[in-house]
Design a protein around this nucleic acid. Sequence first.
DNA 1: GTTGAGCGTT
Length: 307
Amino acid sequence: MSIEYVLVSEGEQDEPIELPTEEDGSLLLSTVTAQFAGASGLKYRAGGRLRGLRLVEDRVSPPPGGWAAHRYFCAFPRASAPSPRPRCSDLIVLGLPWKTGEDAVREYFSSFGELLMVQVKRDAKTGLSKGFGFIKFAEYEAQLRALGRRHMIDGRWCDVRIPNSKDGGAAAHRKVFVGRCTESITADDLREYFGAFGQVTDVFVPRPFRAFSFVTFLDPEVAQSLCGQDHIIKGVSVNISTASPKRERDSRSQLLGWGLLDGAAPRVYSWPPEAWPAHSQHSGHAALAPHTPHSAAPDTKPYLKYE
DNA sequence: GTTGAGCGTT
C-alpha cells in the first residue's frame, strides 16, 4: 500500500490540510498533532452522525471505505473534562473566645461538613488560647459554606479565612483599596455598590473611622479593572486603587492606571447613576447579608464579611 | 485624616 493524502481539518467547518498516511495505510496521530496541536483523535461524519476513528498507539486506522471517502476533523480532550475539584485548604478561625477549645470549635463547624482537623492555638507555657485556630474540611463545598461569613462561637463573632501563609498573595489581586471614604459610607453600602461589578467576598471598614476601606472581589479581573478609577458612592467621590502598602505603589504602572501619563482626563464613575440619594439612611440589606450582625450583637470587630 | 488585628512549636 502506498502513501496517500487524507483531508483533515481542525473543526468540521475549518479548511482541511492534506496529511500523508503511512505505508500500512494508517495515519499517525503525531502527523495530525504536528498540524493540530492537542488533537487526541479523528472523527468524521457518516450519514449524519459523527463517527470516531480507531486509534491504536499512534496509528489512526482508515474507515471501512478507505480514507478518500470522507473528510476528517480533530477530536480534542474535553476542555471541561472532569475537572479535579478544588482541594480543601486549612482555614484559620480568628476571634475565638479565650475559653473556646477544640471540642466547641469542632461541634460548631461540623454543621458545615465533615472536619478533618481542628486546632486551637495555645501559649506553650500557660496553655491559654491565643484566640485563633485552624480547621480543615473534607469537602470543598463545606469550606465554601464556611468561608466568607461570620460565625458566632461561644458568644463571639469569629472569621474564617484562607490563612495568609497559604494564599500565596493571590488575595491581594482580588482586593481594592477604597480611599476618601466618609463615615457615612458603611460596609453594606460598599458591598451593595461594588456588588454591581462582581461578587464581593469581603468588605473591611476600619473602626474607629479612617478614610478608607477594602473591598475584595471573587474575580481578580474585576478588582483590577476598577483600580485607578474614581467612583461616586452616596454622593462621595472615592478613589479605588490596588490594595498594597503605599511605598510599593509609587510606580509608573500606578500612574498609568490613574490615566496621568497618557494625558487622559481622570474619569469619575457612578453606578448605578441614580441609586444614591445623598443622605439616604441605608436599610433593607439584611437579605443580602443574612449573617451580618448589624446592631443585633455588640460587635467590636472593624469589618463585615459577606457570602 | 488614602493601606487592614490577630496567621500555625509539631
